[in-house]
């Protein structure tokens, strides 16, 4: 069936089908046209599943000390054991928790703040817009890594600090892109029509403009999540992220863990692979979502 036929089918289906069937249809369409994105989302769901049910997937206490030190992978310890006798598989599985919480949390905060400010700046224009745009230019002038280093140094070590720092580093660029989108959407005739019939500013912003920003917001979020994951991993690797000892992929790649890498190939391989696969899956999903939701951005690698 050609591309045109299938979209024709779907046009007929609208209204005729119950809602869940049209949802199923668009999911099936995504699976068929975006195989890589589908692989991405399946892997992400698997990792999320392991993270949630970490207690039940052949794991032992990731922070307790065991007696089998530096054992290679076996049936008992899938990924071998580390210098503290901890099961590396357990550490990798539990390590998915901070990674997902940080990635999603930081991007959530950044998106929330950036969307709110973008609506204010793009809708009202004037002095608010000028001030916010200048602030964005200033914040962007400092390399992201320096913001991250400064913020994690200035505040106490906690998952909240990390979320805040990463969100802070990523929101200016998000704000800039979303502001352009708001200005674009505010110029559309139906917004003017809404204003003419006397709709209030908040109503226009949240009921008319915000829903139309959703595609771009989803695209930006899916591109920022892998970047946030890498930023957190980098910080933790340098010893400035999560608390020492926490089961975390980057933690097992840096700091004290490194002294033992010469005694076991499995020590650096598995935690790093978990991180790489997660970031890759988010990137594949992000690419597919961009293709589906915003064809103008196809393959640009930007935003």
């Amino acid at each position: 069936m050609s591309e045109r036929d299938s979209s024709f089918d779907e046009q007929i289906d609208i209204g005729a089908d119950p809602k869940w069937r049209s949802v199923l249809k668009s999911i099936w369409r995504f699976v068929r046209t975006q195989p890589l994105g589908t692989v991405g989302i399946l892997v992400i769901l698997t990792i999320a599943f392991l993270a949630i049910f970490a207690d039940y997937v052949h794991t032992s206490d990731p922070e307790g000390f065991g007696r089998n030190f530096l054992k290679p992978p076996s049936e008992e310890n899938f990924f071998g054991t580390n210098r503290n006798g901890q099961d590396l598989w357990s550490r990798v599985v539990y390590g998915a928790r901070p990674a997902l919480i940080l990635g999603l949390g930081a991007v959530g905060v950044a998106m929330f703040v950036a969307t709110l400010l973008a609506l204010l700046a793009g809708f009202f224009g004037g002095i608010i817009d000028t001030l916010l745009s200048r602030l964005v230019e200033i914040l962007i002038a400092v390399p992201q890594i320096l913001w991250l280093l400064m913020l994690t140094t200035a505040f106490d070590r906690s998952i909240q600090t990390l979320i805040f720092a990463i969100a802070f580093a990523f929101s200016p660029i998000t704000l800039r892109v979303l502001r352009g989108n708001v200005i674009q959407e505010a110029a559309v005739p139906y917004v003017e029509a809404a204003r003419v019939i006397g709709a209030s500013s908040p109503r226009i912003m949240f009921r008319h403009i915000l829903p139309n920003m959703a595609p771009l917001m989803i695209v930006i979020a899916s591109i920022t999540i892998p970047a946030a994951l890498l930023a957190e991993a980098g910080l933790t690797f340098l010893g400035l992220g999560l608390e020492p000892g926490t089961p975390s992929w980057a933690m097992d790649l840096g700091g004290g863990a490194r002294q033992y890498f010469a005694s076991g190939w499995w020590l650096p391989v598995f935690p790093g692979a978990a991180l790489a696969v997660t970031v890759l899956s988010f990137n594949l999903l992000g690419d597919s979502l961009r293709d589906v939701l915003d064809p103008r951005l196809r393959g640009s690698g930007l935003v």
């Binding site: 980098g234 790649l253 010469a262 190939w265 990137n283």
Partner: peptide, 17 residues
Amino acid sequence: SVPNFWIATLIIFLPAY
């Protein structure tokens, strides 16, 4: 996607191991 500090770590440690 692949974090550069992981690649660097593997390049340093795997041949050594």
